[in-house]
Amino acid sequence: MLTNHRLLPLVLLLALTGCAIEPWVQPYERARLADPIMSFERDPVANGFRHHVYQTREAARGAEGGGGGGCGCN
């Protein structure tokens, strides 16, 4: 079992290399991900309205994705 003392160099190493993690999906492999059909928010106006329809008829709210922010319209 690792002690805190032994963990320290590991944590330092991770901290130093953390910004340089090798991406496992290379930029040239992201063509499909960049396709507009893969966007979570393809139509912001339509999505905003859809969330509003649900918010006014359901008790649940929040974490809808997109801008959010709560319109305060009950």
Binding site: G62, G65, G68, G72
Partner: peptide
Amino acid sequence: QVKRQNYRLSLSQILTKNTILGVGWETI
């Protein structure tokens, strides 16, 4: 009156060259 505060944390993660994961948390 009502005073409302929202706290949001979200993460978007490329998992594979075909898959994206989104995680969202919101406290109101």
